[in-house]
Lab assay of single mutants.
Amino acid sequence: DVPLPAGWEMAKTSSGQRYFLNHIDQTTTWQDPR
């Protein structure tokens, strides 16, 4: 597995969808940043 870039975290919604948190610029995205 390729690790997420620095500052990123993967999370899941209550319905189980994956999303990605960027802690550096305080954004979220559905797109995997890798």
Rank of each mutant, 00 (worst) to 15 (best):
K12Q: 10
T27F: 13
W30C: 01
A11G: 08
G16F: 05
D25E: 13
T28V: 01
S14I: 13
A11I: 05
K12E: 11
Y19D: 03
P5W: 01
Y19G: 04
T13L: 08
G7W: 06
L4E: 03
S14F: 10
Q31V: 07
F20P: 00
F20I: 03
D25Y: 12
D25N: 15
H23C: 06
D1Q: 15
W8P: 04
S14R: 14
V2I: 13
S14Y: 10
D1A: 15
T27A: 08
M10F: 07
Q26V: 01
H23S: 00
K12Y: 09
V2G: 15
A6V: 11
E9S: 13
P33G: 05
Q31H: 14
I24C: 10
L4V: 08
A6N: 11
Q17A: 13
V2E: 14
R34Q: 05
D1N: 13
M10W: 09
D32G: 06
G7F: 10
R34L: 03
N22A: 00
R34S: 05
Q31R: 14
Q17M: 08
Q17E: 09
N22V: 04
M10T: 11
R18V: 13
L21R: 09
T13I: 07
K12I: 09
R18N: 15
R34F: 01
D1E: 14
Y19Q: 05
G16S: 07
R34T: 07
P33R: 06
V2S: 15
P3A: 13
G16H: 07
P33A: 02
T29P: 03
P3L: 11
A11H: 02
T13V: 08
T28S: 07
A6D: 10
M10L: 10
G16T: 01
F20W: 00
S14A: 14
R18L: 12
K12R: 11
A11V: 04
H23D: 02
L21A: 06
W30Q: 07
N22K: 05
F20G: 05
N22D: 07
Q31W: 12
I24D: 02
L21W: 03
S15P: 05
D1R: 15
T28R: 03
I24G: 11
D1T: 15
Y19S: 02
Q17Y: 15
T27H: 07
N22G: 01
V2L: 15
A11S: 11
F20H: 06
Q26H: 09
P5E: 01
R18S: 11
L4W: 06
T29K: 05
Q31E: 07
L4G: 01
P33E: 00
W30F: 04
D1L: 15
M10R: 11
I24K: 14
D1G: 14
E9Y: 06
Q31M: 10
T29E: 08
S15V: 12
D32A: 10
G7L: 06
A6G: 10
D32V: 09
I24H: 13
S15G: 13
R18I: 15
M10E: 15
Q26E: 06
W8L: 04
P33Q: 03
W8K: 05
T28P: 02
K12H: 12
F20A: 06
Q31A: 12
I24T: 11
P5S: 06
W30G: 00
Y19E: 00
D32I: 10
D25V: 12
T29Q: 14
I24R: 12
R34Y: 03
P33F: 10
R18T: 14
T27C: 10
D32T: 07
R34C: 04
T13D: 01
P3I: 13
G7P: 08
M10P: 13
V2P: 15
Q31D: 09
A11R: 15
A11F: 00
I24V: 10
D25H: 14
W30E: 00
A6H: 11
V2C: 11
L4M: 12
T28N: 05
P3K: 14
D1I: 14
R34G: 04
T13C: 02
A6F: 11
P3Q: 13
G16L: 07
H23Q: 01
G7S: 07
Q26P: 03
Q26A: 04
G7A: 06
L21V: 09
T27S: 11
K12L: 11
P3E: 12
R34A: 00
F20S: 02
H23P: 02
T13N: 07
Q26D: 01
E9V: 05
L4I: 08
D32R: 10
S15A: 12
L4S: 01
A6P: 12
F20V: 03
E9P: 01
G16C: 07
H23A: 00
T28I: 00
K12P: 02
P33S: 02
I24F: 09
D25R: 15
E9Q: 12
Q17L: 08
N22S: 08
L4F: 09
D1Y: 13
V2F: 12
D32Y: 09
S15N: 07
W8F: 08
L4T: 04
T28D: 01
M10K: 12
S14P: 09
N22T: 03
T13P: 03
D32Q: 09
R34V: 00
T28F: 00
E9L: 01
Q17N: 07
T29V: 03
G16A: 06
W8V: 02
R18P: 14
G7T: 02
P5V: 06
T27R: 13
T13H: 04
T29L: 05
T27V: 10
N22C: 05
Y19A: 04
P33T: 02
I24M: 11
I24L: 11
D1S: 14
H23N: 03
E9D: 13
R34P: 02
P33W: 03
Q26K: 15
D32C: 04
H23E: 02
Q31Y: 12
Q31P: 02
Q26S: 04
K12N: 09
Q17T: 06
S14V: 11
K12T: 10
W30R: 00
M10A: 12
